[in-house]
Structure formats: structure tokens, C-alpha cells
Design a protein around this nucleic acid. Sequence first.
RNA 1: GCGGGUGUAGCUCAGUGGUAGAGCAUCACGUUGCCAACGUGAUGGUCGUGGGUUCGAGUCCCAUCACCCGCUCCA
Length: 570
Amino acid sequence: MRQTRGDPMPARSIEQVRNLCKRRGFVFPGSAAYGGLGSFWDYGPLGVEMLNNVKKAWWRNVVYERDDVEGLDAAILMSRKVWQHSGHEATFSDPLVDCRACHARHRADHLTDDTCPKCGAPALTGPRSFNLMFKSHVGPVEAAAGSEEEMASRVYLRPETAQGIFMNFAHVQRSLARKVPFGIAQVGKAFRNEITPGNFIFRTREFEQMEIEFFIKPPQFVQPGEKTDEQWHAEWVEQRYNWWLSLGVEEGRLRRRAQEAAELAHYSKATTDLEYLFPDFGWGEVEGIANRTDYDLSAHSKDVPPEDLKRLKLETNADSVEKLDYFDPDAKARYVPWVIEPSAGATRAMLAFLCEAYHEELTKEPPAAEVDAIRAEIPAVVKNADKKAKEAEKARAKNEPAKHDPAAIATFCVALEEAAARLPQSLLEVAALLEDHPGAQNLEPVKKLAPKVVKLAEDCTRVVLKLHPTLAPVKLAVFPLKKNEAAIVDVAKRLKHQFQRFFRVAYDDSAGIGRLYRRQDEIGTPFCITVDFQTLEDNTVTVRERDTMKQERVKMEDLKHLLFTRLHMG
RNA sequence: GCGGGUGUAGCUCAGUGGUAGAGCAUCACGUUGCCAACGUGAUGGUCGUGGGUUCGAGUCCCAUCACCCGCUCCA
């Protein structure tokens, strides 16, 4: 069902976005020639551009535009000890039990007793822990799983980029002579062997993270007037929230949600999630800002005082050869810094931005005769729906299975009549209601009317990705108005070459001008330039803007300034 | 992993046991030139994969893989 919040209308379903992604080269299913491999996706020519743009926008915001953050790119494979002491080997797992009777699977920590919630049989297996980390080995090992030799060479593909930052805390601090507070930012792949991935690229087994570990004074060293860990946490939540808004996410579809105590990860004192209102599955986390305290740096340190181990529920680390602490020259004290961690999913961000940007718009007035015909059929649809609703209620009163849901039908009828009254402007809404509304299911008149309305809507509609220019995979398209006119083609190609050193530029001459514009709308290209006969006379071209479809005549010498300004590159 | 659904041309889908189709897209030639133009022609599918039933399988059966919707998930 379509989202009613926000204006104008964003994607109604992940399916729309999926289709567009596949058709236009954003995201393809992985290993396709072999029938695919669960939950791995490949990023096509436009996908890699857009994902890079997301990561660049993040990097610019948290590294370049700040005075207190440095970058890092750590190895994906790290010593197994990292994951032993970070707690991931022991706790980054879902404890699962199977029902011997009905073969249902449940999370052990979600059960209240030892009976199966599905069939009630007291036949549950003991809990088995499915660790979410992918295993591999360093060196040529072919030993049996779990053997001493196997364990000795075992490594994990990192399930989060954060630990690479903790390993390098002291390196970065010393090599750049940084003083706390400061942060380290990293973008990179992470891997989790999810038991149930899904929702396109929302939850995958290989994904990309954008993480910051921001190191601050522990509470006991904070002087009056300095920010506490809670204040830093709150500030980062606001900073990060505003970043999403600055790239075009509508406020009504982004929220901050503080996690309940029971939800918190083993390392976290407090976590606030940023959630985006996705189509189909609703609110989904796109970023988490955690207060990780001094848990991680202490966990990886030798010689941690017993009182700190006790406070953090840690064991003495006999493997570590370093203490990951810091001498604070102002406080004249040595301490293990606390950490605020804003951690976002880059691939998830791309999905959120795509959903947000996806729009279908009426671009021309539908023929009045056809609109009248549709309008005339609405009362019959509503009448029939009412009838079916009453039948369903009767059936329900007699405890017979009902074919319809009266409540859904009621909301459908109200919405349909309301939308129909606003035809023809509401043509897309009417089409969406007839196609998607739960109350419209299995109604004969709807089945007859829907294809007609959908067809008409499609004929009068364009699909446009209203991406923030920073995120758009292609920033500019250049068209020759006449492709067999050598002089026009020359100028168009020259323009393409002039700008392709700054950003991705498309050149297309394989259709009429209207279709060329539509193609670019669909992938979110902010500007199209058309070269025509007039160009040859006065050196001007037509610049057409994606969202407004407005055109203006611009001197070629002014193009660079105009484009840079409007693409936010100035 | 369990339940429900889907899988046919690049895309959207039709095809319910009898010679694999349509629209769109793509390519060529011609025509047109500022918002999804037109004509003619062409390319394109071992019907997800592997078995089975049958004289004959896209269609029926079994298995398997992938995706979607639920259970689950903490980027």
C-alpha cells in the first residue's frame, strides 16, 4: 500500500525500486549465471556510481568538513584473537532451537518455556549457537573443522569494520599527534552469515559500512564545561540525523529511536537508531549511534585494572601485547578513552535514498473521455464492494470462512471515492488503490477496471528519481537534437568530453528527444543539455532540469559555472 | 530452516497435455526534431535447474536453486 506520509509520493514498494535497479543497471542478483547465490548482489554501472557517491558524501561530511576526524582503511581479515576478545566469537550468534515434532525453528532467548510455540510439543532440541561470522583460513589448511590445526589458522571475515579502527587507535593517535576528543572514520565491507537475509539490499550477507569511532574522555575526567559522553552521544545523533536530511530524506520518514535496555548489544551503554520508513516493511534501521564506553579498547588491552574488568564484565586479556590507552596532556592523566560510534550501512543508505527519490508523476493531462469513463464506473465498484463486505460480515457472524475483510473494504471504498473526486490529477492514486489496496483484492469490478486505469496512468506518467545531485550516478546527459548533422554532433561530443573529467556524463542519440529525457529522469540525472541548430549560430544550448522539466537557453561558456553551482560542486 | 507465493525473450507478462507468443526494449535503413514519434525489416527463449509420468510436458509429479510475503534480524 502506498505511503501517505510526505509529499510528493515516494516509492510504493521495494519491488518498483528492485525492477528499476535491475533494468537500468544499479543492482543485479549475484552469481546469476548459476541461478544466483542467496543474498549477494552486484552493483552495476549506475549502482557503483551511486554507492560511491553515498560514501563520498559521508566521507566529506565526517572527515573533510570536521576538524576532529581522520580516515582509515583496515584489513578485512584480522587475527582471530580480535574477535575472541571483542566478544564476537562467543556472543555474535543467534541461539536457535528446533522442534523435533514440527521442525519449526525458534530463537532460544525468545522462548518462555521448553515447549514449541507453534505446535505446543515439548520436543525442542537443545540450543545451538549459529555464529554469524564467515570463517576462512590463512595458509594452506585442510584440517577437520574444530581441530587444533584448523583453529590455529582460522580467521573470520569481519562482521563490522569497527574492530579495525580499535586496532589502530594508538597508531592514528600517535602518527597524527591527535588529542582526545578525536575520531577515526572507515568505509568498508562487512560480512554476516545472516540466518534470514532479505528485502533486496536491506539485509544481505555482504554489505558495506560507514563507521566512526569517536574517542572521548571517560566520565571521571570530564571537567566542568566539557561535554560528557551522553552529550557527545546526543550531539552525534543530531549530526548524523541532519546528514540524512541534507541529502533529501523527508523528515516524516526518518526518526531517531533510542534502543530499549534489552535490545542493546553487549558492548553498548546506549544506542540510538536512525530509522527510515521503507515501503513494504516499514521502519528499518539505517544507522546506529552507540555509546560503546571503554569496552572495546579495554577488551583489547593488557594490564587492565581488575575493577575495570569487573565493571565491563571482561576477562584478563593474556593475548594482548599493548595497552590501548592515552596520555591526556591537559588532564595529566592516562586513561582508556570512551567511544561514541555512529555506524551507518552504505548499501542500506543507497536503498533508502532510492526509495525516497523514486517518483511517478503525471506529465500530461489524460484524455477527458477516458477519465469520464473511469469516473462513471466508480459507483458500481463501491456498490459491489459494499455488497461483498456485507456478505463477509454475515459469513463471519455464522462462523463461516469469509472471502473478504469488511474493514479493509471500507477503507478502500472511502479512499477510492475520495481520490476519484479529484480526477484527473489523482489518476495515479486511483490506479495505486485499485492495484494495491488490501480491500480491493478479489473484487470483480476492480479486476475489470484496474488494468484500464493502470494503462492510462502509465501512458501519462514518467518515472523520475529525484535524487540529490550529490547522489545522482550520472550528473549530466548531452543530446544532439539531430544525430545525422555532423556539426551538431561535434559540439555535443565536445561538451561531453569537456565535462566528463568532473563527473559521469551520458551521451545518447538513439531516440527522440522526449524519450531521451525520460531515460535520464528514470536514473535521476539532474541536467540534460541539448545541442541544436541554434547552437551553431549563437553558441547556446538548452539546459533542461530534471524535477521541473524547465528548459533554459544557456551560453556554452556559462555552462560550467551553472552546472557546478546547481550540482553543489561550487 | 518452516509455511505461503513466484520463476516463460533484456523488461512486463499471456500461454492449464499437441508446431513457444504479445507489448515494450534493442539493432539496421528511411523519416522526424524539445518531453515516452512513425514506417519497414531484423536480432533475441534447450520456458530457473535436474529427474520422472506420458506417444507427446512451458503445462502434471518429485527434487533442487533463486526471489517475494510472514517467523527472525540490532548496518
